[in-house]
Amino acid sequence: MNRPYLAAATLNVWVLVLVLAAAFAVQLILGELPCPLCVMQRVALMLVALGPLHILLRARAAGTLTCRDAAVGNGITILAALLGVIASGRQVLLHILPGDAGFGAPVLGLHLYTWCLIAFGCQIAASAVMLLATAWIEEKPVAWRPTGVTTLAFAAIVAANLLSVVAEAGFNWDLPSDPVRYLLFG
């Protein structure tokens, strides 16, 4: 059961990397700069990914997968996803009145913050399933090669977002509520 467990954790990180990359693509291709709450949701997605990465990195360091590491990793994910629910839920509520067009362009009929709320709910449900699956973890040696490239891909998307938000905020502590240009470039 150890290898399917690590495969699920790896898949989870890659899904989150792809979600962050898709949000980045919307920003760069459609020219829609993320608002402060959108950036908070990206930060929450990054924090969520630290959960499965904890499981992968601990298994890599110890050479085995333990129930303790799996529990801590899923705890990280649930805590971060609850933070994401607060941020995305708040943005959904800001635009819930009839006649409100919402912030940004919808994707497949829903705004990005609504997709985020759904994603955070799915993360909490997935962590519950992963916690149940610890019942089948066998504490014996396991080698899992994709951990390195998965961690590097995640670090790269976080670094890209960091540079983007620095460009967007310029030398200001906070972002404007409705950003229209990169303040670092005037």
Binding site: P36, V39, M40, V43, M46, L47, L50, V158, N161, L162, V165, V166, A169, F171, N172, W173, D174, L175
Partner: peptide, 10 residues
């Protein structure tokens, strides 16, 4: 910048 600090902490 506060958001960059959050990402740096990540």
């Amino acid at each position: 910048m506060v958001y960059a600090v959050f990402m740096l902490l990540v």
